[in-house]
């Protein structure tokens, strides 16, 4: 199409005026809340199509993460896999593995050098008394049903998806750090590359494609389990529905985590 350059040049003022008026009127439409018959009509016509697109099973997913404390060997593969999968900067941890050592006088020694990422290849040498128990406890986001971090975020950059994942919109986060303070489990940090809040997502990007979280995939002993509690054939549902005793962390805070620990001692916080 040929543009009449002459016309635009001649009547530049009029042209700009028209553009401004148009955009003003257009923006008014955004301000006035309208009951849209058209939108309702479109919705109605497309209703069947939209419903057919949604997999009815999807809406009934009830994801859970389980950690079998007895099965963890503290190799750190999960942490390595997570750092690689999610490009977590050094010095910050989306997941880590703690080593618990309890002596015969019930003194509890906990450590997690470099988040346990290098594997626990050496014994602790600073414990003088005989040891009665020792185990590893992997930690990650608890995906609370009542997440403190979502509650406190001043700009609503962190949110809960309909299928229960607590995520951060890094393009909206102001990095005030309130969520870092509010998380009872210490799983949040300010990513020093993006300068926004960051945390474990249970590999939402993988799960939404039907894959397992990277750490679950990497675990050689099956200590990390992930699945749908509504699927009776899933491993997590079988454990959940069995007589085995499951524990969530800091239950008294009322955050209702869906990260369950199987065989975790009283000492695990």
């Amino acid at each position: 199409m040929e543009i009449d350059q002459g016309f635009i040049d001649k009547d530049r003022r009029g042209f700009i005026e028209k553009v401004l008026r148009g955009s003003l009127k257009g923006s008014l439409l955004l301000l006035i809340p309208m009951h849209s018959d058209l939108f309702a009509q479109v919705l109605n016509e497309e209703k069947d199509k939209i419903i057919s697109l949604i997999d009815p099973k999807d809406t009934r997913k009830n994801y859970a993460f389980m950690v079998d404390v007895g099965a963890c060997i503290g190799c750190g593969s999960c942490c390595v896999a997570d750092r690689k999968e999610n490009h977590v900067p050094e010095g910050s941890y989306r997941t880590w593995v703690e080593r618990y050592v309890i002596d015969i006088y019930n003194t509890v020694y906990v450590d997690a050098p470099n988040g346990g990422e290098d594997g626990y290849t050496h014994m602790r040498e600073d414990i003088k008394e005989p040891i009665k128990n020792a185990f590893y406890v992997p930690k990650l986001c608890n995906m609370c049903q009542e997440p403190s971090c979502v509650q406190v975020c001043p700009v609503a950059a962190t949110f809960k998806t309909p299928d229960g994942f607590v995520l951060v919109d890094s393009t909206h986060c102001v990095a005030c750090g309130y969520c870092v303070q509010a998380c009872p489990y210490g799983v949040r940090f300010i990513n020093n590359e993006t300068h926004t809040a960051d945390k474990c997502t249970w590999c939402y990007h993988r799960v939404s494609k039907g894959k397992l979280p990277a750490c679950v995939n990497a675990c050689p002993t099956g200590a990390r389990k992930f699945g749908d509690l509504n699927d009776p054939n899933s491993e997590v549902a079988k454990i959940y529905n069995s007589k085995k005793i499951l524990k969530v962390l800091k239950k008294q805070l009322g955050n209702e985590p869906v990260l369950y620990y199987l065989g975790a001692n009283e000492e695990v916080i």
Binding site: V150, Q151, V152, C153, P154, V155, A156, H172, Y178
Partner: peptide
């Protein structure tokens, strides 16, 4: 975009 749903005490 204040988080008044939480509600966030900071917002």
């Amino acid at each position: 975009t204040p988080n008044f749903v939480g509600p966030s005490m900071m917002s």
